[in-house]
Design a protein around this nucleic acid. Structure first.
Length: 577
RNA sequence: GCGCCUGUAGCUCAAUUGGAUAGAGCGCUUGGCUACGGACCAGGAGGUUCUGGGUUCAACUCCUAGCAGGCGCGCCA
């Protein structure tokens, strides 16, 4: 039940009817009309700008027109206690108690669907996220995008869309070869006591490779590991598998489970790259040509050559993008083009990619390809998550792949925990860089907004324990005819805004609004709770049984919204803390 | 040089996709625990929303020109 949508429909209906009766003029497009949350100082529940939008067409001052519309609304609606005009022409509405009683009754009986956006058309989404190279466990840098993707998936599913979560495994190309070579050298180190070359920047120095090497030795007792070329194929495959094991373990610890893992190598092997290039060629999006040297400092040794290019400049990219390397093997981009064609062939309505900030420069070319292949500019949405700045002991902490000293997801979960990690990573818009202060999150965990929200839920559970009601049971309420105090109405207003929070988070793919909302709701609750300290009237458990029931319904609705929101962001709501 | 992101209170950030007197946390400061859980609450101080111009009933939000910071800019993935 979205009361803002409800009243928007109502108001549009009222002005449309009035225009038919020649009482007021309306323009063709009524999109500007909105029903919104009024500022707190007005003590009203909803507010509309309808008079301001229609004032031009009626050649009347907004405040004058507003008075006229107020009369129309009053005639139509019996649930309004007070309706008034505020400068420069807003119409503010305050509901009767009965409205809120009905509202609560509605959300308690339909608590599972409260917040779902019922207007939106159900779609099939493909969400690609993480897709980190399978060369080792995940580190903190991967975390933010991983959590963002997972929560977007939850959010879309919550709104009854179909979502497939996919991980693209880059198990082909030079990096994988270097990785496999590193594993080989670790194996030699173990079997033949040959020291691992520490100074080769192409190799992967991390200690986790030793474990991977050990596992592979265990599984290949007959192999001698005498010649890299001989074992390379098999070894690469097994090394990637070992890496994926680590990655899946990390993801599971974060509470993330993908539906599909798609292998780049498989796509290349199946000649899907050739297939898609043929398709693009037919439509003149691929040609043989030369590229200019890139305009950065390290482009001194640039050699111009003829090569296969995708015409991404047709779609607004800076330059056309190469599909083939000098040795005629495919570029990363080429196989990614094939992968995206593969996605398109699986008939999804919308494709979403979650990328780290360091890959943002890649967006234009890949959206261009999807547009070229599908003819639809909005088929692929790329969402960027900005960097996480790690801070330890008040100082920025730089991770270095060369030294192998980076913080893994495992370290993070062990130190901070899944819930705190998810809540903090989500608490900010993905467009801004995030400060992740280790020492703070660990030491001062009481200042963590996660606990503030969880504490709200735990307190509610504690009340229910006192009256011997299981909070998860279906609660039978006989009487819904309650009289609410202003402080309680403030909580009800906040609850009524939950569907809006979901709607905006979903349409903009911005889940950070959810933790923000939950914090605000929890704040309303804690504030009310503390009023019961001085004044028994405000306590939830009361000698007057009817009064207690009224409060318990209110509490229950808060707990339902908190739980629902925490479910979406994938964080627990313990009943005791 | 070009592209993307950011610029809001001392610090870290919100702001319902253009609304009314721009809000929180931390920090500073004054107060509140014999309680339905103090992991909490109430109050105070703190603002030229980076700058200039434009669009309109209305701009933190949109357009434009700048300034500052971050990220990226082979045939690496």
């Amino acid at each position: 039940m979205n009361i803002f949508d409800l009243y928007l429909e109502k108001i549009i209906k009222i002005v449309t009817l009035a225009s038919k009766a020649k009482e007021i003029e309306i323009p063709e497009n009524l999109n500007g009309i909105k029903v919104d949350v009024p500022p707190v100082q007005f003590d009203c529940d909803i507010s509309t700008n309808v008079a301001m939008v229609l004032s031009k067409a009626n050649k009347k001052a907004p405040s004058v027109l507003a008075e006229q519309i107020i009369e129309l609304i009053k005639k139509d609606d019996k649930e309004i206690e007070n309706i008034s005009v505020a400068n420069p022409g807003f119409i503010n509405i305050k509901f009767k108690n009965s409205f809120w009683s009905n509202f609560l009754k509605n959300i308690i009986t339909n608590n599972k669907s409260f917040g779902i956006n019922k207007k939106s058309i159900k779609k099939k989404y493909l969400l690609e996220f993480v897709s980190a190279n399978p060369t080792g466990p995940l580190h903190v840098g991967h975390c933010r995008g991983a959590i963002l993707g997972d929560v977007l998936s939850n959010l879309l599913s919550f709104n009854n869309h179909t979502v497939t979560k996919e991980y693209y495994v880059n198990d082909d190309g030079n990096q994988i070869l270097h990785f496999s070579k590193s594993v080989y050298l670790r194996i030699r180190e173990i079997l033949k006591k040959e020291p691992f070359p520490k100074d080769n920047p192409d190799l992967y120095p991390g200690d986790y490779l030793i474990n991977i090497a050990k596992n592979i030795i265990k599984n290949n007792k007959n192999s001698k590991f005498d010649n890299f070329e001989e074992v390379s194929n098999n070894l690469t495959k097994q090394s990637v598998e070992e890496s994926l094991k680590l990655i899946k373990f990390n993801l599971k610890n974060l509470g993330i489970i993908h539906d599909n893992f798609i292998s780049e190598e498989e796509i290349v092997k199946k000649k899907e790259v050739e297939k898609v290039i043929k398709k693009l060629k037919k439509n003149n999006f691929v040609y043989e040509g030369k590229l200019n040297a890139p305009k950065n400092e390290k482009s001194t040794d640039w050699k111009e050559r003829n090569q296969l290019l995708f015409k991404s400049t047709d779609f607004g990219d800076d330059k056309d993008r190469p599909l083939q390397k000098a040795d005629k093997s495919w570029t990363y981009f080429a196989s990614d083009v094939a992968y995206h064609n593969n996605k398109l062939e699986r008939n999804y309505d919308v494709l979403i990619n979650i990328l780290g900030a360091d890959h943002a420069g890649y967006i234009k070319r890949i959206t261009s390809v999807v547009e070229a292949l599908s003819g639809n500019k909005n088929k692929l949405i790329c969402k960027v998550s900005q960097l996480v700045k790690l801070i330890k002991d008040g100082k920025p902490f730089k991770m270095s792949k060369r030294k192998g000293d980076y913080i893994t997801v495992e370290d993070l979960i062990n130190e901070v925990g899944k819930d705190a990690t998810r809540f903090i990573m989500l608490n900010r818009s993905s467009d801004v860089e995030l400060d992740f202060d280790f020492t703070k999150v660990k030491e001062k965990s009481k200042d963590n907004p996660l606990y503030y929200v969880q504490y709200c839920y735990a307190r509610i559970c504690s009340v229910f324990r006192h009256v011997n009601i299981n909070i998860n049971d279906k609660v039978n309420i006989k009487n819904f005819d309650f009289k609410y105090k202003l402080e309680e109405i403030k909580i009800l207003r906040k609850i009524s805004q939950w569907p809006q929070c979901i709607e905006i988070s979903t349409s903009k793919l911005e889940p950070h609004r959810i933790p923000t909302y939950l914090y605000e709701l929890a704040s309303e609750f804690h504030s009310f709770w503390n009023m019961g300290r001085d004044n028994e009237e405000f306590r939830f458990i009361n000698k007057d049984k009817n009064l207690s029931e009224e409060k318990l319904v209110l509490l229950l609705s808060i707990s339902k919204v908190i739980k629902s929101g925490m479910n979406i962001i994938g964080v627990n709501t313990p009943e005791k803390m």
